[in-house]
Amino acid sequence: MTRTHDPAATQHPPLFTTVDAGRFDLATCPTTVAQYWHYLLDQGLDQEPAPRLHAFPRQAGTGLRTDRQGRVTLDDELSTLPATGVTWHGAVAYCTWLGALTGTHCRLPSAAEWQRAASGPRGWRWSLGNEFDRPLYAPEATGPRPVTHLPAGPTGLRGMTGNVFEWCSDPLASPDGPVPGSRAVKGGAYTLRNPESFENGTTFTSDALSTLPYIGFRVLRERRPR
């Protein structure tokens, strides 16, 4: 895997761009391994398991892994990968932490907010246009790709379509009300193939305690003072 230096991928706090006609700011990239590692160290979460928040594989490949003692270690050369293995609760906790640290209101986007940001001012079907560009969105891959390899759309967002799903705030809706335990994910992932799964308007859901190498998240920052 090529290491590419891009300040946006390793910078803490993350870079934001204003989207949805100025209604909110969204991180230009999904939260990266480097950024999540910064949070783990700040909170002392690298020292012991936190199964409600995250779990990392024993094998290298996704940037963070768990050693034999249960501690989290960083594979520095993979720090520009999107942070994966983070549960919905872990993604929410990261947003809350970042907001407190930076004096802003940070949270996960709703599926509707995510969709408006991804569709952009021209209402595109996928984040970079109305054509499904398979080599760009869904190349053959066995794991996440560095977010720095992904081109930016008109509002500066990278990696909205493909690579890894992104957690959103919404619970799974049902005619009987929300189904407990599942939350929305958007954007498609390297594990999928058919273009419809990647559309801005398509929403899947996943168990909120999922720790999977194909689900990450990005932070929404509200445009109001804390």
């Binding site: 859901t205 996943s206 168990d207």
Partner: peptide, 9 residues
């Protein structure tokens, strides 16, 4: 991911 009967935690 949903709606599968097997999850990964």
């Amino acid at each position: 991911i949903d709606p599968g009967f097997v999850v990964h935690r």
